Computed example of a mutant assay.
Amino acid sequence: MSGLRLIRRHAAAFGRFAGLGSGVTLAASAAQVLLSQWIPWMAANALTTVASTVVATELHARVSFGHGRPGLAGHLKSAATMALGWLVTSAAVGSLTVLRPGAGLVLQQAVYLSATALVGIGRFLVLRLAVFAERAPRPRTGGGVRLRTAYDAAA
């Protein structure tokens, strides 16, 4: 595959990844607001985080990467990338509050969104290259079996 075609495929996958991820995040945010009217905010946050991670993993595997159903291993690996991303964004905002205790909302959001963007790029790379990597075509085994049978018969 030519380099330009490969770049286009990865760029298209990244566009789908970003679009789907943004859509799921917005839907989860709305669901969290609604749920928090009936249950405590922390419980609503936990439920929407788990649900949105499952939905996003299904969408990314099938649509962003054309991988098919992710299975339990794919879901767990994707959840691990989400957990790591949460730690990174939390550390970024936490560091800001230590370094600049009086930081305003605009700076806090700038740090959070910058960290989120970096996490998103890292998450895309891990999912694309490791979790939902393109599979190489498998060689056909039929010929090998016949050759082995012919070899055994001749021996």
Rank of each mutant, 00 (worst) to 15 (best):
M1Q: 07
M1N: 05
S2V: 01
G3N: 03
G3H: 03
R5K: 11
L6V: 08
R8C: 05
R9W: 09
R9P: 01
A11V: 10
A13L: 02
F14L: 14
G15A: 14
L20K: 03
G21F: 10
V24R: 02
V24Q: 00
A30D: 08
V33N: 03
L34M: 10
I39R: 02
I39L: 13
M42C: 04
A44T: 08
N45D: 12
A46N: 06
T49Y: 15
T49N: 13
V50E: 06
A51G: 13
A51C: 09
V54Y: 06
V54K: 02
V54G: 01
V54M: 07
V55K: 00
A61P: 00
R62A: 12
V63G: 05
V63K: 00
F65V: 03
H67A: 14
R69G: 14
L72Q: 04
L76Q: 05
T81W: 07
M82A: 15
A83R: 01
L87N: 07
T89M: 10
S90P: 00
V93P: 00
G94S: 07
G94A: 06
L96R: 05
R100Y: 12
R100K: 11
P101R: 02
G104Q: 05
V106M: 08
V106T: 11
Q109L: 15
A110T: 07
V111H: 06
V111P: 02
Y112P: 00
L113G: 02
A117W: 11
L118W: 11
V119N: 08
I121C: 05
R123I: 02
L125W: 11
V126L: 10
R128C: 07
L129S: 13
E134W: 05
R135L: 13
R140Y: 03
R140Q: 09
T141F: 09
G142Y: 01
V145G: 00
R146H: 11
R146Q: 12
R146I: 12
L147A: 14
T149D: 13
Y151T: 11
D152C: 11
D152S: 11
A153I: 09
A154L: 11
